[in-house]
Write a protein that binds this DNA or RNA. Structure first.
Length: 417
RNA sequence: GCGGGUGUAGCUCAGUUGGUUAGAGCGCGGGUUUGUGGUACCUGAGGUCGCCGGUUCGAAGCCGGUCACUCGCCCCA
């Protein structure tokens, strides 16, 4: 029989790697809890419309990167490609519109049918936060500050840069877009093929093209900051001021744009150059239009999502599963006597494994392999004396003790480490 | 979706201009050790050379296709 494997771009997570993921997730949950964001969980698949409506018919995520399918009742469903739409949908369904602001955190798998690369999988995990119901620029600053603290907690701040930009409100953006198209039309013959396509579909995207020729053309293109109305301009100034107050380093990058239609005003990205071309590690922005697109009232929102695999790759702490105690019986028939000992050790919070097979030599080899700190040996001599033998595997010393004394000893030494 | 690289033991990799039983280190099993691990020594197992086809007397090595990984583009976390 042919050996089965995972599907393309979908990977197993073995203990080592999962440990790194959990470190990222736990840091995220802890810091967002302190910022008073409450964890929620939403479905992994939804009616396709939850994503197709807000993401816009032209976005890649909807046109070619989706996992879309019909279930047995012919409903069009989609594996979620991102978290924000689902969170806002849940917020609307729960009637929390009555009770704003709401602050949420979430994490879990997302799905995009893309060509896999390092840091880009078809099933990948995101950690994200959303702040709903606050139109004030203070919410933008809060959210960026939370992201910054999250990365700081992971010890990654010195490897990561923050870029921010504004897309303006919808009015400013329209005016800017028109000006940009007029400018770019003069260079139609020199634009790359990709950008030529973008010119009609999503001209703002041309601004962050990696094509050198495009970049030269873009250098002298209209600057979004000059097209902002006074409200949009004031917002952006506030955000810069807020970040200054927090001593958060950032660079303004007027070519930073968003692929998804519901974004407006603030856009930001934390990037690294340690991951090759998939350098965006945490990104987000304001999405005041989203709630309405999902059929709800006009509720503003701002948030971000971080790539767990990408961050875990940078954290890379070595995971050692350290066993506290192994239980070794002299012969197989003593194994039954080891069960209540294990139970008692576990109740005392001690990580325990019974080694069932082999002679004593093999059992100690196993103990060594799993990096056990202590061995408790139970043989004929111990049974007749009604004690156990506690061996410290680091220094090799052995002692006859009763079980309660042994537990005490193990716990004392654990605390010292 | 487009372009480049790679694929040999569980892992990291050798393998000459195509030549007969495909190798190493680590890891794994057994032993030196009948109540005791780590070190050392001895020894053993493990490979349809990613898969399919072609060229050839003969293919791990050449050619075509395919799958997977990887790098860049696209896009994004």
């Amino acid at each position: 029989m042919e050996k089965l494997r995972t599907v393309r771009g979908v990977h197993d997570l073995l203990p080592n790697e999962l440990h790194n993921h959990n470190e990222v997730i736990n840091a995220g949950l802890e810091i967002s809890d302190k910022y008073n964001y409450s964890q929620i969980e939403i479905p992994i698949f939804e009616f396709a419309e939850v994503f197709t409506r807000p993401l816009g018919k032209s976005s890649d995520i909807v046109t070619k990167e989706n996992y879309i399918f019909k279930d047995r009742s012919e409903d069009e469903l989609m594996l979620r490609p991102e978290g924000t739409s689902g969170v806002v949908r849940a917020f609307l369904n729960a009637g929390l519109v009555q009770d704003v602001p709401q602050r949420f955190s979430y994490y879990g798998p997302m799905f995009r049918y893309e060509r896999p690369q390092k840091g880009r999988l078809r099933q990948f995990k995101q950690f994200g936060i959303e702040c709903l119901g606050l139109p004030s620029s203070m919410a933008d600053i809060e959210v960026i500050s939370l992201g910054n603290d999250f990365l700081c907690k992971l010890g990654l701040l010195d490897k990561i840069n923050l870029k921010i930009n504004t897309l303006g409100d919808f009015e400013s953006r329209e005016i800017f877009r028109d000006a940009l198209v007029i400018y770019l039309n003069d260079y139609k013959s020199k634009l790359s093929r990709d950008s030529l396509k973008r010119l009609s579909v999503n001209p703002l995207r041309i601004l962050d093209s990696k094509n050198e020729g495009d970049q030269k053309i873009v250098e002298n293109a209209p600057n979004i900051l000059e097209y902002l109305n006074s409200n949009s301009k004031a917002r952006f100034d506030d955000i810069c001021k807020g970040l200054d107050h927090l001593n958060i380093d950032y660079t303004i990058d007027n070519n930073l744009v968003r692929g998804l239609d519901y974004y407006c005003h603030t856009a930001f990205e934390f990037t690294t150059n340690e991951l090759g071309s998939q350098g965006t590690v945490l990104a987000g922005g304001r999405y005041d239009g989203l709630s309405k697109m999902l059929g709800g009232p006009d509720i503003p929102g701002v948030g971000w999502a971080a790539g767990i695999e990408r961050l875990a790759f940078m954290v890379q702490s070595e995971f050692v599963n350290k066993t506290d105690v192994v239980l070794i019986g002299q012969s197989e028939k003593n194994n039954f006597l080891l069960l209540p000992i294990m139970k008692k050790l576990v109740q005392n919070g001690i990580k325990t494994e019974i080694i069932y097979d082999g002679n004593l030599s093999k059992k100690f080899k196993r103990a060594n392999k799993i990096k056990a700190l202590y061995a408790i040996v139970l043989g004929e001599e111990e049974i007749s004396k009604k004690v156990i033998k506690l061996k410290d595997l680091k220094i090799g010393s052995e002692e006859f003790l009763d079980l309660n004394q042994a537990i005490k000893r193990i716990k004392i030494n654990e605390d010292l480490e």
